[in-house]
Amino acid sequence: MAVIFKADAGDYMVAAENLRKDENSIWLVAPTNFMRSHAIELLLKAVLLANGRTLDYCRKKIGHQLFEAMNEAETFGLVLTDQTKNVIRTLSPLHEDYTFRYRPSKPYAFPNQAVATEAVTELFDRVDAIVQSKCLAP
């Protein structure tokens, strides 16, 4: 499942980048951040799955809590820059309360698009190394 989650996260990353590059991207901030946040969720859960956590655990215990998933993934050797951790910290409550799915009337802050893209790319590369070593090693 870790390999599948990582692959699916890659697809969400591509979709988010395609939206970000659209000339009307200012109107696509919520969908772009939704896809980016979901990619982060899948990547963090891929680390947990690669290290023996079950799908049921990921669904019920972690849910959509990106910050909790990141903290647990770090205990399994995931190392991220402070910038990437800050992006995940910023997106975590917004992802957990479905802000990007059902936008609230109150204002909210989200990461700079370029910084968020860098963060997800870093996360993907670090997770890829973990998943490869745990799941695809001979």
Rank of each mutant, 00 (worst) to 15 (best):
M1S: 01
V3Y: 00
D8F: 01
A9P: 00
A9M: 00
Y12L: 07
A15V: 00
N18M: 05
L19C: 00
R20G: 03
K21P: 02
D22Y: 03
D22T: 01
I26W: 10
I26Q: 09
W27S: 01
V29Y: 01
N33P: 00
N33Y: 00
F34L: 15
F34N: 08
S37R: 03
S37F: 05
A39Y: 13
A39F: 10
E41R: 06
L44W: 08
K45Y: 10
K45C: 08
A46L: 08
A50R: 09
N51K: 12
N51D: 11
N51E: 14
K60D: 14
G63N: 13
H64R: 09
L66C: 10
M70V: 09
M70T: 09
E72D: 07
E74C: 07
F76P: 09
V79T: 14
L80G: 06
D82P: 04
K85W: 08
H95K: 05
Y98K: 03
T99C: 00
F100V: 06
R101E: 11
Y102T: 02
Y102W: 03
P111W: 05
N112Q: 07
A114L: 08
V115H: 07
T117F: 15
V120R: 14
T121F: 11
L123Y: 14
D125G: 05
I130W: 11
V131R: 09
A137G: 03
P138H: 10
